[in-house]
Design a protein around this nucleic acid. Structure first.
Length: 533
DNA sequence: TTCCGACAGTGGGGTCGCAAT
DNA sequence: ATTGCGACCCCACTATCGGAA
């Protein structure tokens, strides 16, 4: 039986050391000593999780509830003198009770339970638990290093551990298997209706890069701006899972119907993307979101925003796991079992740069995000982001003025790290915010930017420092969205700073009118009429 | 010896459901 | 009826360590 404070102790030590090997050693050493019941719980806590990733349990406790619970405990200045330290299991059981509270009065009940937990803890334990509940333990180790620790404990290659992670989809369960049945790690079989972590893609910035990385011919696919779906089929039963492994079958009846009608396979696990299409055109992502997880007026939204399905991979078929088959052979199998081409992601094998450019342009002209390039000889690597899959997306650039900045956290503390981006509203002569970004600057640039911004400071409220609008930054973004949050009426999606333009003055920045013009241009004729009307 | 792949950390906007107000 | 919170869709980018080249 281990105490929660032992876990905190090891987390602190892991934080202290910079070496990853040493972090792994410390984690393995600790997890080896725990009881089988404690192992998965401790492993998840260290990864900033409470429940398994495939689990539907929700804590329903976030920043606000934590703050509320913590403020009461902090002011309660009664130090527990002879209180028995909490065990790891006791902490977990209370968190389960917090997750279990629903309905009227549940919020207060959750906070009460949280208070009871915190009141039995030392400051160090409180700090750690809060970080677990935020999902940001910040010990310089997370799932990746925990899986390395599993490999060390079980004394098997990391590839066996990754195989088990694919099957189990949870670090806690993997660590338990490493402890109890290490020889099973490399041999476990995929289970239908237990979701697998989807394979992810790295960014690419040009067609040349795709050729350089993957070589000719390229296997290109359209990249759709929708939601990732993993579809499990077994004898007419279909279940659908999201990228984060949530079961969302009841939200996608149209997808289920398409699969039942067009996939010839007794058992299969398919990978694809769904997007909402109206009048033959994909709707903006923010509109597609309206029907994801919707309950109210469900039928209406499902009808008005019908999903189109584009399958691009198959990782299991009729008892055979295909992750160790090449992408090109998986794609062939997929094409054999899917009877309608409409259900496939559009794909083309190209040999020349120009063909690739044309395919990319074609995808963009149909209002899709861009293209994916997939290495033909590559295996399916669940949960791994690597260069086997590359995404090439389009983006635009504008010049914004920094109108405020927020103090950073963690390794960014002491720096102004998050910048409010403004564009000039010609009518009022004021700079209006179109969103924030914390991406694109190097440490040295944060340092310099912080100094410059503090010189321009007009006032400070909480974490936010307001400044005279003088510094211009070139900002890349992937889409202009309608916004209720910002008075400008627009927000940039995926905004990041390309470079700082100390050479430019604020009056050279992009105007709101220009932004509006770009937004309307992207909206095709039909939507444009609605906006004007 | 240098290079580069995988990880961890830092945070973005929008949307819904739900409990509290 | 409205508001605020929490969960979950979509993520991009830089620094770092340690094995690959």
């Amino acid at each position: 039986m281990a105490f929660f404070r032992d876990l905190v102790e090891v987390a602190d030590r892991v934080t202290q050391v910079a070496s990853r090997k040493e972090k792994i050693r410390l984690l393995a050493e600790f997890l080896e000593k725990l009881s089988p019941e404690e192992v998965p719980i401790a492993a998840r806590f260290l990864a900033g999780e409470v429940f398994p990733e495939y689990d539907t349990k929700e804590l329903g406790v976030g920043y606000s509830s934590l703050k509320q619970a913590y403020s009461v405990v902090r002011h309660a200045s009664i130090l527990p003198i002879a209180v028995q330290p909490l065990t790891i299991t006791e902490v977990y059981r209370t968190l389960e009770r917090i997750a279990g509270a629903t309905g009227e009065g549940s919020k207060n009940k959750k906070i009460k339970l949280l208070q009871s937990l915190l009141s039995r803890m030392e400051q160090r334990e409180i700090d750690f638990l809060l970080r677990v509940l935020f999902g940001e333990v910040r010990i310089g180790a997370s799932k990746g290093l925990l899986l390395e620790a599993a490999s060390k404990i079980a004394n098997v290659p990391i590839s066996d551990v990754l195989h088990a992670y694919m099957v189990l989809s949870d670090v806690g369960d993997v660590l338990l298997m490493a402890r109890e049945k290490p020889s099973m790690l490399g041999r476990a079989e995929l289970n239908l209706f237990h979701p697998v972590k989807p394979m992810l893609a790295d960014m690419a910035y040009s067609v040349e890069e795709l050729f350089q990385e993957h070589g000719a011919p390229l296997y290109l696919e359209y990249k759709y701006d929708g939601i990732r779906l993993q579809i499990h089929i077994d004898s007419g039963r279909v279940e659908v899972f999201s990228r984060r492994l949530n079961r969302i079958t009841e939200f996608v009846p149209d997808v289920v119907e398409k699969v039942l009608g067009n996939v010839k396979a007794e058992k299969a696990i398919l990978d694809g993307e769904a997007l909402a299409v109206v009048d033959g055109k994909p709707v903006a992502f923010q509109d597609l979101l309206k029907r994801v997880r919707r309950k109210r007026e469900r039928e209406k939204f499902f009808r008005e925003l019908p999903f189109q399905l584009h399958l691009f991979d198959v990782i299991y078929i009729n008892g055979r796991t295909l992750v160790k088959e090449t992408y090109s052979s998986r794609r062939s199998i997929l094409q054999e079992i899917v009877t309608s081409d409409e259900l496939l992601a559009k794909m083309k094998i190209v040999y020349e740069k120009e063909e690739a450019e044309n395919f990319y342009k074609e995808a963009l002209s149909e209002n899709h995000e861009g293209v994916m390039s997939k290495r033909a000889s590559s295996f399916y690597k669940p949960g791994i982001r690597g260069s086997d899959w590359l995404k090439l997306k389009s983006y635009d650039t504008i010049d914004c003025v920094i109108i405020a900045a927020e103090w950073g956290h963690g390794r960014r503390s002491g720096w102004l790290s998050n910048y409010h981006l403004g564009v000039l509203d010609e009518e009022s002569g004021k700079f209006l915010s179109v969103g924030k970004t914390f991406k694109g600057l190097s440490d040295a640039e944060f340092e310099e930017m912080t100094k410059k911004l503090l010189q321009l400071k007009t006032r400070e409220e909480g974490y936010t420092v307001y400044v005279k609008p003088e510094i211009v930054v070139e900002v890349d973004y992937s889409e202009i969205q309608r916004s209720k949050r910002y008075p400008s009426g627009f927000a940039l999606r995926f905004a990041r700073i390309r470079r700082i333009r100390f050479d430019k003055s604020p009056d050279e920045a992009t105007t709101l009118g220009e932004l509006r013009r770009r937004y309307l241009q992207k909206m095709q004729n039909k939507e444009l009429d609605e906006e004007e009307g």
